[in-house]
């Protein structure tokens, strides 16, 4: 791995872009260019060379690394001490970086139970649109000094600045993991997922694909074994979770547009459109004539992959929120140089 601190070089590149108002496309491992956000035409700013673990204290449960550090490198370092990034970010054939993961707020099947990087991030360093290198948050678990700029980066798709370093909470790897499978139609699976999640059991995954409900148990060995004996089902290997996490399930193949609906876990099954259900019911992967769907209350729809990525790929905001979001963008990036149009056409 190329381990180097390129913070100052990145800052200079941002300063130059500021000076002639020339937009930048921030690129880590270039693994998510066709996912989540809109297409963005701008001069690439490569973060990949800015990598390396800055600090890792296993008994503090805190890891700090430069934004371009590949997730696989982090996973290796953490595994040495029996720890992990609890939010199960996709490594995408080894190319995904820590900074890109924060910018996209991508997390795996454990999200409802173990959170996303949005929940794990403790601090960031970023270069704002005035070419200033700024630190927010820190390396401690609790920090309420100032606004939570670190979490604001999660899902901002790099439109608020160049993330250069991330401090985040890590957790022990579970001592045991076990997957249970049940043949079941979607509506029954949703109900089962919600009911099982009410129990105090080591549940860390609940998904439904192709007529099967899968539940994942992870934690202390005897707790996992005991729960499995109570819940029955067929014990299968754990590969389904990696397929979902790495976007390698057949669901993600083929060119058809794939939509992600984020909703309450007990939202009734959306027949016809649903290809898969994850996050214990809180995510529905949809395909087909999705734009005509009457959205459930409080749900958000995103064109995750494929389709027309020059139009908006996420839901409309009301005018008050739109204005507020625009002002937040201006507060960080007054010249609008970072990833223009990646989040919304107007940001």
């Amino acid at each position: 791995m190329d381990m180097a601190d390129r913070t100052e070089a990145l800052r200079e590149a941002v300063a130059a872009a500021c000076a002639d108002a020339s937009p930048l496309y921030i690129r880590g491992g270039d693994s998510k260019r066709k996912l989540i956000g809109r297409d963005c035409e701008a001069t690439p700013l490569d973060i990949g060379g800015h990598s390396g673990i800055i600090d890792y204290q296993p008994d503090e449960l805190v890891l700090s690394a430069r934004a371009g550090t590949p997730l696989v490198a982090l996973a290796d370092a953490l595994a040495e001490y029996g720890q992990t990034l609890p939010f199960e970010p996709p490594q995408l054939q080894g190319s995904a970086t820590l900074g890109g993961t924060l910018a996209c707020n991508l997390s795996g099947p454990a999200r409802p139970w173990l959170g996303s990087i949005r929940d794990a991030v403790l601090g960031v360093q970023l270069i704002n649109g005035r070419a200033q290198t700024l630190d927010f948050g820190g390396k401690v678990m609790k920090n309420v000094a100032g606004y939570d700029v670190s979490r604001l980066q999660a899902g901002a798709l790099g439109t608020l600045g160049v993330i250069t370093a991330v401090h985040c909470k890590v957790l022990p790897l579970p001592a045991a993991t076990l997957t249970l499978a049940y043949d079941m139609p979607a509506a029954a699976a949703i109900s089962t997922m919600c009911t099982r999640a009410l129990e105090s059991r080591p549940l860390t995954g609940a998904c439904w694909l192709e007529g099967r409900l899968y539940l994942r148990l992870a934690g202390a060995e005897n707790a996992v074994r005991h729960t499995a004996s109570l819940w029955g089902g067929e014990q299968v290997d754990d590969s389904i979770w990696a397929q979902l996490r790495e976007l390698q399930h057949p669901l993600f193949e083929g060119g058809e547009p794939l939509w992600r609906l984020s909703c309450a876990p007990n939202t009734p099954h959306i027949a016809q459109l649903t290809r898969a259900i994850d996050w214990g019911g809180a995510v529905r992967w949809l395909q087909g004539d999705v734009r005509t769907l009457n959205l459930p209350a409080g749900a958000h729809l995103t064109l995750f992959q494929g389709g027309d990525r020059s139009s908006e790929v996420r839901g409309r905001l009301d005018p008050v929120q739109q204005q507020l979001q625009r002002r937040i963008k201006q507060a960080f990036d007054p010249a609008g140089i970072f990833n223009p149009g990646r989040l919304y056409s107007w940001i």
Binding site: N105, R118, L152, H300, D318, K329
Partner: peptide, 29 residues
């Protein structure tokens, strides 16, 4: 309610946010 008295909802029924995660920004503000 914003300072102008306009009502907005931040976050939602699910776990994703549309746009910037203003819920994170509001918490602890």
């Amino acid at each position: 309610l914003t300072v102008e008295g306009d009502k907005i909802t931040l976050g939602g029924a699910g776990l994703d946010s549309p746009g910037y995660d203003l819920l994170a920004l509001i918490t602890g503000s």
